Computed example of a mutant assay.
Amino acid sequence: MPDEFVVRSLDEVRFWSRIMKEHSLFLRLGFRCEDTQLINEALQFQGLFEDIERRAHEFTVNTDPQTIREFNSEVHNAATHIWAFKRKVLGLILQCKLPGATNFPLLVDHVSREANYFRNRLEELNSGTLEPLHDAIIDENVFFLKIMADHAKFIGHLLDPSERKLVEQAREFSQDFDTLMFQAIDLSSMRPQSQTIPLLSQFVDENRVSVESLRDFKKTARDLIEACRIKSIIHPLLADHVFREAERFLFILDMFERSLSGIKVNKREILF
């Protein structure tokens, strides 16, 4: 039987190293041509996480756990460094030291939150201190609902203003996910009394419906962008990037739903 630690570690690293690689590209594209040092740093991170992603796919579920533990530590170090880079860039933007650059402050904060999430997951895996299910359900939803709300805002701002219907749809998704996020925060503040199976099941079900709708909207937008059928300044890879993150959230919600129902998750299903 494959080791659960190895399976979950490879799943996290394979998914998030690709995300970190793409963040590096998106940040680089948003810098001004004279920001050569920042551009070079972003290129270095892009290469670093591309290599990590490649190596993660070379391991198998039968790899020795100690080897994976050492790999996780190495990746954690890389995630910490890219988190620091992103926070540095955010500081420069908020201090008005990058006038004319096109990286939104919220976008830079957003990608730094994902880097921090990634390194925290690696710490939990290596220490063997994963959150209890009922805490994980609330905390993962608080995190990902904010991510989904941000995505809707970014899409709305990067679409051409003349795409009025799509811009309005993005605005509605932004409001919906802001509401869901605040509901999740309320549920979190009521812990542990709020952590009953009926409440958590309803919480997961309600969020799933909205995430599925947003996922479908993102897929449509991605396909239209790739076919050059709508007006926007959204990079096709960014459109696919946010679609994959919605799929990731749905995958996590599915695992939570099955766990609450008492259905055991097959370890091999985690590596999708």
Rank of each mutant, 00 (worst) to 15 (best):
D186E: 13
E247L: 14
P236S: 08
S127R: 15
D135Q: 13
L25M: 14
N62F: 15
H110N: 01
F272N: 11
E168S: 10
E245N: 01
P132M: 02
Q169H: 09
L271F: 11
A227N: 13
K264H: 07
V211P: 01
N103H: 02
Q195Y: 04
K146V: 03
Y117K: 12
L125I: 10
Q193P: 00
L260C: 01
L133S: 02
N141W: 08
H134Y: 10
E74M: 07
L214G: 01
N72T: 08
D135V: 13
F154N: 04
L107I: 03
N266W: 01
E212W: 05
R14M: 06
L224E: 12
P105G: 04
L125T: 08
A84G: 06
L10K: 08
D176G: 01
Q193L: 02
A227D: 12
R171T: 07
F173I: 09
G91D: 07
T67I: 13
V242S: 06
V209F: 08
L10M: 08
N40R: 14
E70W: 13
R215G: 00
H235G: 04
A170N: 04
L250D: 09
V13E: 04
H157A: 15
K218E: 13
E257Y: 09
F118M: 07
F272Y: 13
S194R: 05
R69V: 05
T60E: 04
E74I: 03
N207A: 12
L180S: 05
E172R: 14
D150H: 13
K88L: 10
R87P: 00
V204N: 05
T60Q: 06
M255R: 13
A152M: 10
D254C: 00
T67R: 13
L237A: 09
A246V: 00
L122Q: 09
P99I: 02
R248M: 05
F177S: 05
E53H: 15
L106V: 11
F256V: 00
Q169E: 10
Q44L: 12
H235K: 10
D139T: 12
L224F: 03
R69I: 03
L133K: 03
A79K: 05
